[in-house]
Amino acid sequence: MKCPDKIIEWMHDYLDGDIVPDHEKALREHLQHCPECSHHFNSLKKTVAFIQHASHLAPPSDFTKNVMAKLPKEKKRVRIGRWLKNHPFITAASLFVALTVGSLFTTWNQGQQFSVSTRENVVIQGHTVIVPKGKTVDGDIVVRNGTIKIEGKVNGNVTVIHGEKYLASAGQVTGEVEEINEVFDWVWYNIKSVVKDLFE
């Protein structure tokens, strides 16, 4: 007797785990009195068991290392980012130092251009400020990146940052005369002015 094809189909549905209950019942009944199909079914089940129990080989222990070694180089940005993440204290400290030093240098180097705090009663020639003979400047003078020549009179302090001062013999300054050419002087000057501002 030739069994219908659907019997074999049901066997596979059964093995896939999605046989409908009616078919399952019919399949069971058929297998009970058909040794040929029963043998077919058993050999299928055995086959599946063999495949499922195939022993699994593990990849070599250096597998991951080898894969990682063959990957294209990662972006530098990410590598630095990870390093920073792993060293939060150093990051914070160096950030602080960098900002402090950076801000000092930028203010020190900033404005290479010439400037003078007052224009009254002075003559400006290029980067030189001249307080002419017989003239009087009331108040402080601050000159940046330039030279000051005092031939007249200044009623106040004279400060020269990044520059030179020439006091003619006839020149007169009632306040202090200061020349700032170094970073530390600059810092000191800034601190002094901040403190002065606080008290005034």
């Binding site: 699994h56 593990a58 990849p59 597998f63 894969v67 990957l71 990662e74 990410v78 990870r82």
Partner: peptide
């Protein structure tokens, strides 16, 4: 772009893929 994270993924799936 973090490659270290990928090492963990490789570790996790290497047996199955192999």
């Amino acid at each position: 772009g973090d490659q270290n994270a990928y090492a963990e993924i490789v570790e996790l799936y290497k047996d199955k893929v192999y």
